[in-house]
Design a protein around this nucleic acid. Sequence first.
DNA 1: AGACTTCTTGGTCAAATGACCAAGAACCTC
DNA 2: GAGGTTCTTGGTCATTTGACCAAGAAGTCT
Lengths: 219, 219
Amino acid sequence: MTKNLGPAAARRTFDEEVVLDAAAHVFRKHGFGGATVREVAQAAGMLPGSLHYRYPSKEALLLDLMERALNRVLALGRSAVESARDPAERLRLGLRAHIEALLSGDDDFYVLLYDWRSLEGAAMLGMLRLRARYEAFWDDLLQDAARAGWVRPGIDLELVRQFGFGAMNWVAQWRQETDPRTPADIADAFWSYLAFGLLAEDKRRGFGQTTRKRKGGRR
Amino acid sequence: MTKNLGPAAARRTFDEEVVLDAAAHVFRKHGFGGATVREVAQAAGMLPGSLHYRYPSKEALLLDLMERALNRVLALGRSAVESARDPAERLRLGLRAHIEALLSGDDDFYVLLYDWRSLEGAAMLGMLRLRARYEAFWDDLLQDAARAGWVRPGIDLELVRQFGFGAMNWVAQWRQETDPRTPADIADAFWSYLAFGLLAEDKRRGFGQTTRKRKGGRR
DNA sequence: AGACTTCTTGGTCAAATGACCAAGAACCTC
DNA sequence: GAGGTTCTTGGTCATTTGACCAAGAAGTCT
């Protein structure tokens, strides 16, 4: 299967992948707190000592894992989006990429989503910095769309990003393997709801089209 | 503070609340797997033995806790919604109630959101049944709106529910105590985005207003 | 106040857990 | 194939963990 990739270093990275895959699987199943290094080792096909040789602590595993996850979504998002110039289309493609990543079966993303609270101190800060890059990726997409006049006025783009993140990430929670909707179906439906809204044409009058009764001023 | 509510039974329920509050706090902080019964006991102001007297196991705590959480959101949602007849307004009020609950500081909801994976077997099934009641509450709201002609055709209401759940629940993740937006602000903004969509008026032509390229047929 | 129930105390117990390591096997390089 | 490096083995070790309990204290009721 995996032919000889060259000398030692290559196998080392390969091994690391295997270990992180195992960790992702176990952490996803039990949560970081509930998982044991022994089970990770077993899932990786090695003894606990061998795992310890590669990773000195459980937390180190979590860190590398979440970093890998973040790099992966970011890479997938960027590559998905680059094929289109149109800002709205780029948003749609980004949405697709994110949801397809989540539903690809890669356990990494679940750990990224659900074990955030297990990070501490510097580890947390590092992750936040990395996460900020992904958020910036989306903010760019949104701002490009807004600048090109695609977005109706009065919309808080940061709120939209969070709104979208929530909707997308939640898919990992509810979507079953047996669901007839493909990831792309779901993404496109989400895009359509988000872009056009739910209301029927004849019901769109009579409501403030931006938030009603604003409280604080814009920041 | 808490005046004598009457005889023993009252204090017992009060005690149980205290214990569940403590459990909610600890589970939220470390996750169910990472939390210890000792810490729960301490947070509840009692020795581990006393906690054991009330709850025979850690899992029993989780169960009661999640049940309480589910009953709470459901009750809050129902009561928020009953003041309006208009289907769109009822949706907006439901959204508000859900988000305000999440941001109220009640730890229960975080446990409900993040420790689902710690449930097993019958416990899981029981929770699913309870959760279904909350989902049904929302489906009713959505179907009422659709039946009254508020929703543009071709929209998958179940998908909309999940879409909304995701957006709402995610708020618990990102919203900081220092955020100038009130929970109601956020809820109303979400409602506006969901109802009207993001696109500017002049950009709404030329796209299929429902999902493009449907794959499977409608179920 | 006496009888009874409820709850707490302070601890035990076996199992699990994260971290660690000495000794040796496997591998690589020259 | 010798010498050095990398990795594995099989285990140890101090803690922590969930569960449990006998004995007594506190509360309740009549």
